[in-house]
Deep mutational scan, measured.
Amino acid sequence: NMTTNERRVIVPADPTLWSTDHVRQWLEWAVKEYGLPDVNILLFQNIDGKELCKMTKDDFQRLTPSYNADILLSHLHYLRE
Rank of each mutant, 00 (worst) to 15 (best):
N1R: 09
N1Y: 13
N1C: 09
N1F: 12
M2H: 09
T3S: 14
T3I: 11
T3K: 07
T4E: 13
T4C: 11
T4N: 10
T4A: 07
T4F: 14
N5K: 12
N5F: 14
N5H: 08
N5A: 09
N5Q: 10
E6F: 12
R7D: 13
R7A: 11
R7Y: 07
R8G: 05
R8L: 04
R8D: 15
V9T: 14
V9W: 13
V9Q: 15
V9K: 15
V9A: 15
I10M: 13
V11Q: 11
V11A: 15
V11W: 15
V11F: 14
V11H: 15
V11S: 15
V11K: 13
P12Y: 03
P12N: 10
P12M: 02
P12C: 02
P12V: 02
A13L: 09
A13P: 15
A13S: 14
A13E: 15
A13H: 13
D14W: 01
D14S: 03
P15M: 02
P15N: 00
P15W: 02
T16K: 09
T16C: 13
T16Q: 05
T16F: 11
L17H: 13
L17S: 15
L17E: 14
L17W: 10
W18K: 02
W18Y: 01
W18F: 00
S19G: 06
S19N: 11
S19Y: 01
S19D: 11
S19C: 04
T20A: 12
T20Q: 09
D21L: 07
D21H: 08
D21G: 10
H22G: 05
H22D: 11
V23Y: 00
V23W: 01
R24K: 11
R24D: 00
R24N: 07
R24C: 09
Q25E: 12
Q25R: 11
Q25C: 11
Q25F: 08
W26Q: 01
W26P: 00
W26G: 00
L27C: 02
L27R: 00
L27V: 08
L27F: 02
L27N: 00
L27G: 01
L27H: 00
E28S: 07
E28L: 08
E28N: 12
E28R: 08
E28A: 11
E28D: 06
W29S: 15
W29K: 13
W29V: 06
A30I: 06
V31W: 03
V31S: 11
K32D: 10
K32M: 12
K32V: 10
K32T: 10
E33V: 05
E33Q: 12
E33L: 05
Y34K: 09
Y34H: 09
Y34D: 03
Y34Q: 04
Y34N: 09
G35V: 09
G35F: 04
G35K: 13
G35T: 14
G35L: 09
L36F: 10
L36C: 12
L36Q: 01
L36M: 10
L36T: 03
L36N: 01
L36Y: 03
P37S: 14
P37Q: 10
P37C: 12
D38S: 09
D38M: 03
D38F: 02
V39M: 09
V39D: 04
V39P: 04
V39K: 04
V39C: 12
V39G: 03
N40L: 05
N40Q: 06
N40G: 03
N40P: 06
I41H: 08
I41A: 06
I41V: 11
I41F: 11
I41E: 09
L42D: 09
L43C: 14
L43T: 14
L43S: 13
F44S: 04
F44P: 03
Q45V: 06
Q45T: 06
Q45E: 13
Q45W: 04
Q45P: 03
Q45N: 05
N46T: 10
N46Y: 08
I47K: 04
I47P: 00
D48C: 08
D48A: 06
D48L: 02
D48Q: 04
G49Q: 01
G49T: 00
G49Y: 00
K50C: 12
K50L: 09
K50E: 13
K50T: 12
E51V: 09
E51P: 00
E51M: 09
E51R: 12
E51N: 08
L52K: 01
L52N: 00
L52S: 00
L52Y: 00
L52P: 00
C53L: 11
C53V: 10
C53W: 02
C53A: 06
K54G: 10
K54T: 08
K54S: 14
K54C: 07
K54Y: 07
M55V: 01
M55C: 04
T56W: 03
T56H: 07
T56A: 07
T56I: 04
K57P: 10
K57A: 13
K57V: 07
K57Y: 02
D58L: 10
D58Q: 08
D58V: 08
D58R: 12
D58T: 08
D58A: 13
D58F: 08
D58S: 07
D59A: 14
F60D: 01
F60Q: 00
F60R: 01
F60I: 14
F60W: 12
Q61W: 07
Q61G: 11
Q61R: 10
Q61I: 15
R62E: 08
R62N: 12
R62D: 12
R62Q: 14
R62F: 07
L63H: 05
L63F: 08
L63V: 08
L63W: 05
T64K: 02
T64C: 08
T64I: 03
T64W: 08
T64H: 03
P65S: 13
P65T: 12
P65L: 06
P65H: 15
S66G: 10
S66A: 14
S66C: 11
Y67C: 15
Y67D: 15
N68D: 12
N68I: 08
N68H: 08
N68K: 04
A69L: 01
A69S: 03
A69P: 07
D70V: 05
D70M: 04
D70S: 07
D70R: 10
I71Y: 04
I71E: 06
I71M: 14
I71H: 12
L72H: 00
L72N: 00
L72F: 10
L72K: 00
L72Q: 01
L73E: 04
L73V: 10
S74F: 03
S74I: 03
S74K: 14
S74Y: 11
S74R: 12
H75D: 15
H75R: 15
H75P: 02
H75F: 02
H75S: 11
L76Q: 00
L76H: 04
L76V: 07
L76I: 13
L76R: 00
L76P: 00
H77D: 07
H77F: 04
H77M: 04
H77E: 14
Y78L: 15
Y78P: 10
Y78S: 15
Y78V: 14
L79D: 07
L79A: 11
L79V: 13
L79E: 09
L79R: 11
R80N: 15
R80G: 06
E81V: 06
E81Y: 09
